[in-house]
Amino acid sequence: MALPRHFVVFILQLILVPLAFNLCNASHGLKNGFYRKTCPKVEAIVRKKTAEYISKAPTLAAPLLRMHFHDCAVRGCDASVLLNSTQNNQAERDAFPNQSLRGFQVINGVKSALEDKCPGVVSCADILALVARDVVSMIKGPHWKVPLGRRDGRVSIMDEALNLLPPPFANISSLKQQFASLGLNAKDLAVLSGGHTIGTAHCFSFSDRMYNFTGQGDTDPTMDPNYIAHLKKKCSPTDVTTIVEMDPGSFKTFDEKYYTLVAKRRGLLQSDAVLLDDIETKAYVKQQALTHGSTFFKDFGKSMVKMGKIGVLTGHAGEIRKHCDFVN
């Protein structure tokens, strides 16, 4: 089976297409305790329901965290990534970068539990933000306060996800540019990349680094040769099914080991490795590797809150979906 290179090339060509709307707009309307009167037990309900899934399948934590980022990076944090395609529209969910997302049943399960207690009150966008926080804390990661009050969007377009989500082989310049378009800086990039301490990646997302880095059948010179040899035992050049741990040995635990790996030139994806190509991101990687993640947990919570405010709909904008998979 051939590698889906046409998809990958298409993403790379379009990655820097300018946003057609302002994702860096104000987050007015988000606040802690937003549902204090309308659904006072919202966070307890979300955490309990999420724990039911994560206790049985801890590997869902990584795709659920990734789902929140993939949502916020396209049209802002409006739960547009959750919408199903229709006969007349292909939605974000079916874009190639989103086809590996898992855990939609968790979001729907949480939504159902909230609808039982507080019908028509809590948005799917807020659920995504809370679930992302909770799954991280459930696997020994940090816990942070999530400002709430997002509303759900009504539009989801597959091509926008293709255009705007960073590919695994992005260079540092394109990554910084895309994050800047979202109102996130170089430190946020380095911090949020630390989310790769959990989860897995398919071989095809990094196979060029092992087999054809510049199109000449060569390997990535920035990658530890011993790590390349290890990965070649797992992935053949045309492998599209095998998955590899992002953080070998602790990919189910949220910790600081990602930075130690990147510092040793063992970042799995090219987008991990290129953190060493920028003064600021490299300094952050080295600092966390040397200090065993002394500030990583605190930094991660701050960057997640910042990310969770991208392009939000508040007030009377959007809607509160009754079901997260389709508009009302």
Rank of each mutant, 00 (worst) to 15 (best):
A2L: 07
L3E: 12
P4D: 06
H6K: 10
F7T: 09
F7I: 03
V8M: 15
I11N: 11
Q13C: 08
I15E: 10
N25G: 05
A26R: 05
A26H: 03
A26P: 00
H28Y: 12
G29Y: 12
L30W: 04
K31Q: 04
K37C: 00
T38E: 01
P40D: 03
K41G: 05
I45W: 04
V46E: 08
V46A: 15
R47W: 02
K48S: 15
T50R: 02
E52A: 15
E52M: 12
A62P: 00
P63V: 12
F69P: 05
D71H: 12
A73V: 15
A73N: 08
C77W: 00
D78R: 13
V81A: 03
L82K: 06
Q87D: 13
Q87A: 13
N89S: 15
E92F: 10
E92L: 15
R93I: 01
N98R: 06
Q99M: 07
L101K: 07
R102G: 04
V106T: 05
I107F: 07
N108D: 11
G109M: 14
V110Y: 01
V110H: 01
S112C: 05
G120K: 05
C124R: 03
A125R: 02
A125E: 04
A125W: 06
D134L: 05
M138R: 10
K140Y: 12
G141C: 03
G141R: 04
G141L: 06
P142S: 12
K145R: 15
V146N: 09
R151T: 02
D152K: 02
G153V: 02
R154I: 13
V155D: 09
I157M: 06
D159K: 05
E160T: 04
N163E: 13
L164E: 08
P168W: 07
N171Q: 08
S174Q: 10
K176I: 03
Q177I: 00
Q177Y: 02
Q177H: 04
Q177G: 00
Q178C: 01
A180W: 00
G183N: 12
L184R: 10
N185T: 14
K187T: 11
S193L: 12
S193W: 09
G195H: 15
G195A: 14
G195S: 09
H196L: 12
T197P: 02
S205I: 07
S207I: 09
R209N: 11
Y211W: 15
N212H: 10
F213D: 08
T214V: 03
G217D: 04
D218M: 14
T222I: 00
M223V: 09
A229Q: 15
H230I: 01
K232P: 08
K232D: 11
K233V: 00
P248A: 04
S250M: 03
S250T: 14
K252T: 12
F254Y: 05
D255Q: 09
D255P: 02
E256F: 06
L261M: 05
L261D: 02
A263S: 11
R266W: 07
L275K: 09
D277I: 13
E280R: 07
A283D: 15
Y284R: 08
Q288E: 13
G293M: 06
G293C: 05
T295W: 00
F296I: 01
F297C: 03
D299L: 10
G301C: 02
K302C: 01
S303E: 13
M307C: 12
G308S: 14
I310R: 06
V312E: 01
T314R: 07
G315T: 11
G315W: 09
H316F: 13
E319Q: 13
E319S: 11
H323Y: 13
C324V: 07
D325K: 10
